[in-house]
């Protein structure tokens, strides 16, 4: 997993609620047996029409917006457990997703792939959408160490929450498998005790 510490960049606004994992990556693209290339099909049916031509009105096809930060409506990532959704977002280049609410499994999957989900309150989310609308080039500063999200153009500083363990993992680029394997002895003792 890649390390994540600090980032200063522009964002893309996706002002839609309940974006489910079937939209992020439709099921027909889940046939691959490796992790690569999912970015191409991120939001496939919103990005391209039936003839595979880009749909101009969709935000990812709008040249005014760019950057590794996705700002999305409430309840982002609901639906299936497919980690392909997180892979598609990271493969496309996203490093941060901001929303007023994330579905559980998605949030875990994102963290396990070095994609930082930042939850803000609904009022803050509205402010953030407005900020990008009035200036698509406004910069976001995400500081994981300090747990802050800052948008200088509107004088906004938000302290966000993240699980302490997950924070350390992200900053150091560790993952859970490393941790669990190092605890094997404890796991074996647990098994022995249960079977006794």
């Amino acid at each position: 997993m890649k390390k994540f510490t600090r980032l200063q960049q522009t964002a893309i606004p996706l002002d839609i609620e309940n974006v489910d994992t079937d939209q992020i990556i439709p099921a027909r693209f889940l046939k691959a047996t490796d992790r690569k290339g999912f970015g191409e099909n991120l939001f496939r049916d919103w990005r391209y029409n039936g003839d595979q031509n880009p749909i101009d009105s969709f935000i990812l096809n709008n040249k005014n917006y760019s950057g590794p930060i996705l700002v999305a409506g409430n309840n982002f990532g609901c639906g299936s457990s497919r980690e392909h959704a997180a892979w598609a977002l990271t493969d496309f280049g996203f490093k941060v997703v901001i929303s007023s609410f994330f579905a559980d499994i998605f949030q875990g999957n994102a963290l396990n792939n070095g994609l930082l989900p930042i939850q803000v309150n609904p009022e803050q989310l509205t402010l953030i959408f407005k900020a990008i609308e009035s200036d698509p080039k406004c910069e976001f500063i995400v500081d994981l160490e300090k747990q802050t999200l800052q948008i200088a153009s509107i004088d906004l500083i938000i302290d966000f929450e993240i699980n302490g363990y997950k924070k350390i993992c992200l900053i150091n680029g560790y993952d859970d498998i490393d941790y669990l394997i190092n605890n094997k002895q404890k796991i074996i003792e647990f098994e022995n005790k249960r079977n006794a």
Partner: peptide, 13 residues
Amino acid sequence: GIGTSQVAQVFAS
């Protein structure tokens, strides 16, 4: 339900 990284965790531990 779990994501694929977690499937790997369970495989490993």
